[in-house]
Design a protein around this nucleic acid. Structure first.
Lengths: 330, 330
DNA sequence: GACATGCCTTGGCAAATGCCAGAACCGCGA
DNA sequence: TCGCGGTTCTGGCATTTGCCAAGGCATGTC
């Protein structure tokens, strides 16, 4: 794409951003195509470029968000299955991902849905507590860039030693980066060696301050984990098999945002909880919007327990899971 | 769209895809298509319907605004020509329609642009004063339905006797209807027979009240008319040729929102002004956002005068007109 | 001043989409 | 049970779009 003629000589000086005209062309092509309904041929002719270039311009316009294609989120919420699950699950809102989509991993697909919903829900001065998980990570990657300097994104659970690509720190900072929001990481280990250490840590001013901030949360975002079979908790090195067994023996079926619970939604505690640095549940439960995102048949029991525990009041899941849940919830 | 519970009896013959998408089919098709990037074929397969039906669903989804395609209005404002004209014309904002669009009439194309911009600019408690004209009418028809019960749309100029399809009443009520806003028409003739009558009318409580409302305007929307050759003023029966000549002889080159002006932006008055029921110019000029919409080579001189008179601080026009104006404004 | 490098553009083909007219279907009434 | 009006769905074709690999053009380097 050529710069306008007038700029030819001064161009080597590069006073203004070089691609000024380019942005306009994409914009104009987009207008003519999407608003006036011209064919790419016609636009090509009128702009004096090839049709292929028009195609490229349109693609660029979409990529650069000169044009955006959005799906009305209120409709998503009104979909039949969403409404049914919302009512049966005692939720404030519920969103269900259509079955049989692309071949991508389910958590990526759910993450995409979650991203679109979160974008719509975010308000200018939100404080968002973020947990961790593959789906949350996926959501963070699917978020569109936005400018929300008033938003704070805070980590609800301590950081981990092991580095894996969906750690609490990464989830939090990723989301904050996309939103251009303030990122507040929790600079403490997620798990410490004994309860005494936890007590001491919690008294540290910086940590204490962080937990004060968490009490301001207007939203939290978290995934769910099931406990049977290979789980992230173990794979990520957060917990050992023995610890997990201990919870399972106590009747726990799932883990979400730092808490274990049984099928009836009772919180299950073991000694691990005394070493786990996480937002206290009594604070957590006071957050107005608690958004849980996750799905897959292996998680159904866990999600059911999570719903009974009322950890979430907004659920984002997939169709198959939603179906099963509806069936199970009487 | 069929009701979801069609499963009663006929459905038992359809074992393969036992999914019931009910009224959400369009929504889900839209999600899979626009968000997950599936082909129509694939969606058809997964939903167990023909590809053509998927196409129809997608079309419906667009029509019903389940999906919307929008062009970032801030980009429109940042386009080169817009910026140039904004600065040269002493405007707050300026929007330029790309040249060489569809074969539709220019005023329809500009109206479309105006509609998109107005949609973006409207705030929840706006009071919008609306004048009349073909372009304004066209804008009103291109507005997307919205729900703005807090908005008031008020007529800035009196109504006319002759009925034509872009009368002040129609422009006003059309816009209000689209926005689901309150519509306040001015129940008085646009032109009365003598100045005495105008004085009396203006004292009428209802009329007086209306003009009080107009003083609350946060926005006004109006077109421009040129005076040479056949004009709307004459065609619509608002004015006679003699009256127009009178203004032209006094140096007027254009008419906008009820006022005549000369090329230097001086307001031109004749006896007609004493019979013309319209918002007083000193009130008009205080409205924070005065949006003028119009274009076409025949209007260039008129728009130039209008700009000098600073009647508008937001201008929506087409590329050709914008080019000429830039050239003329030094 | 010639050559290498890398982004843009283009022509053309294969795939995807848009659209229409006829088929299938539904509910209703006889 | 059959026929009928109105609606929705589908097969198939013409058009439009998406994409790729080859060719340009301009800049940077020696």
């Amino acid at each position: 794409m050529r710069a306008p003629r007038a700029a030819d000589k001064t161009e080597r000086r590069k006073p203004p951003p070089p691609m000024q005209f380019g942005a306009d062309q994409a914009l104009w092509a987009a207008w003519l195509y999407y608003e006036e309904g011209l064919k790419q041929d016609e636009i090509a002719e009128r702009l004096g470029i090839s049709r292929a270039s028009v195609f490229n311009l349109l693609q660029k316009a979409r990529e650069e968000r000169i044009v955006t294609i959005t799906i009305d989120p209120t409709r998503l919420e009104r979909a039949d299955l969403s409404v049914e699950l919302k009512e049966k699950g005692g939720l404030l809102e519920c969103y269900v991902l259509p079955a049989g989509g692309s071949a991508a991993a389910l958590y990526d697909r759910i993450g995409l849905l979650g991203a679109r919903i979160l974008e719509q829900k975010i308000e200018d001065d939100d404080v968002i507590g973020v947990a961790w998980g593959r789906t949350v990570m996926s959501l963070s990657k699917a978020l569109s860039p936005a400018n929300k300097p008033g938003v704070t994104v805070a980590q609800v659970t301590g950081s981990s030693i092991a580095t894996y690509d969906f750690s609490p720190e990464l989830c939090t900072s990723n989301i904050a980066a996309r939103l251009n929001a303030r990122c507040v990481n929790l600079h403490a280990p997620g798990v410490v060696s004994n309860s005494n250490m936890k007590t001491l840590l919690m008294q540290e001013p910086i940590i204490d301050q962080h937990f004060k901030l968490l009490r301001q949360c207007t939203k939290t975002l978290f995934g769910v984990t099931h406990l049977s079979g290979p789980t992230l908790l173990e794979d990520s090195g957060v917990m050992t098999e023995e610890l997990l067994m201990q919870y399972q023996n106590s009747g726990a079926v799932g883990f979400a945002s730092g808490y274990f619970f049984d099928p009836d939604g009772r919180i299950v505690r073991t000694g691990f909880d005394d070493r786990h640095i996480v937002m206290p549940i009594e604070d957590f439960i006071k957050v107005p919007q608690r958004i849980c995102i996750g799905g897959g048949i292996e998680k159904i029991a866990a999600i059911q327990g999570m719903l009974k525990a009322a950890l979430a009041n907004v659920l984002i899941t997939d169709q198959e899971t939603a179906r099963s849940l509806c069936a199970r919830l009487r």
